[in-house]
Computed example of a mutant assay.
Amino acid sequence: MLSPRRHPVLCALLVCALAVLAARPGDPSVGDGVTGGADGSGTGTGTRVARLYRDAAVATQQYERGRHEAEAQRAEARRLEGLLEDQRREIAVLHEDLGRIARAQYRDGGGLPIAARLVLAGSPEELMRGQHALSQAELAVNNAIAKSRRAQARLAADEARAEAAWRALEERNAELAAMKASIERKLQEARTRLQGEADVSAAAGSCRGAVRLDQPETSYTTAWVAPVETYTLSASFGSGGARWAHRHTGQDFAVPIGTPVRAVGAGKVVKVSCGGAFGMEVVLEHRGGYYTQYAHLASIAVDQGERVGTGQWIGQSGTTGNSTGPHLHFEVRVTRELGSGLDPVPWLAARGVRIG
């Protein structure tokens, strides 16, 4: 690792990095501004979780940009370190020149007073030649000293600017990391609260009004999408397990609590339920006589009878009902009821959505 006092002279590159990092992510306190509620007015924990997800994504992007920029600057610094070493070698050569000139002056009588030179000179012409040589030598010494001093001053200034720029860059990266960690901590707290509220509703078997989530503007070029944007596949269709009476009837997507759940295609909400093995769930009817189910939710963002578009947020993932951890249970059926399921993975693949 480079010593901070040996960083390269071209500090402008580091200043550019700081300019890139200066675009700060949104104030983490924005996640505290609750404008939604479980009573259907749009205010509450579900909305706060959705906003914190967005804030966390912005903070992560800013942090990653800063980290990549810092890495690029470090790579450039290693390349430019060679230029700084050239400066140091030049100064060393100047010092050698000074020593050589001083030694030559001493050997040639450069330190003798003018009277002694007159006595020792064989003729006036010889005296003049010697005097000229001494003047040239003194001029060379003065030039070499001035050049050496300028080079040393330039080197010290360059190193000082580089050190200051690197320190500011590292401080900004630390600030971004702290901001990201703060948002993620608030997000985890909000997830816990959201799941607690969902558990109360699921236990009571009573759904509160739809929590209208502030979904960003989206424009899908396809008629079908995956039910969640980022996920890890867990239990698959038809797999066995102690928690299922027969076989697993859908495809599970392991995602954190509060992850926005999307309608895989345009359709109509034909069922909203908040009790039983599936916990909080939504069932949509699509063209062609197919139905999709989204279960174990932590919040529901639609009402029964409502029409939804492709990719519209219909709820947030959770772990309500018969669930061992946060995930989305997704089913494709030929009726709205359990027992008519199809394997969701090839069904989505036939519609241009690759899962995996």
Rank of each mutant, 00 (worst) to 15 (best):
P8R: 10
C11R: 06
C16P: 05
A19Y: 01
V20M: 05
P28D: 06
D39L: 14
A50I: 09
A57F: 09
A59D: 10
Q62D: 12
E69G: 00
A72H: 07
A77G: 13
I91M: 08
L98F: 13
A102W: 02
Q105W: 04
Y106H: 15
G110N: 11
L112H: 10
P113I: 04
L118T: 01
A121C: 05
P124S: 12
P124W: 12
L127C: 06
E138C: 08
A140G: 03
V141F: 11
S148V: 05
A157H: 00
E163N: 11
A164S: 11
W166C: 02
N173M: 14
A174D: 15
E175A: 12
M179W: 02
K180I: 07
S182K: 08
E184K: 00
T192D: 15
G196F: 12
G196P: 03
D199M: 13
A202E: 10
A210M: 02
P216Q: 07
T218Y: 05
T221V: 09
A226T: 11
T230S: 13
T230W: 07
T230K: 13
S234T: 13
A235N: 01
F237H: 06
F237G: 08
S239A: 14
G241C: 10
T249M: 09
T249Q: 14
T259Q: 01
A263D: 02
V264W: 01
G265T: 12
A266N: 02
A266P: 06
V270R: 06
K271G: 00
K271H: 09
E281N: 13
V282R: 02
L284D: 07
G289H: 04
Y291K: 08
H296G: 05
A298V: 02
G305V: 10
T310N: 05
Q312S: 09
T319P: 01
G321P: 00
G321H: 03
N322R: 15
S323R: 04
T324S: 14
H329F: 02
R333W: 03
T335M: 04
E337Q: 13
G341E: 13
L342Q: 11
P344R: 09
G352A: 05
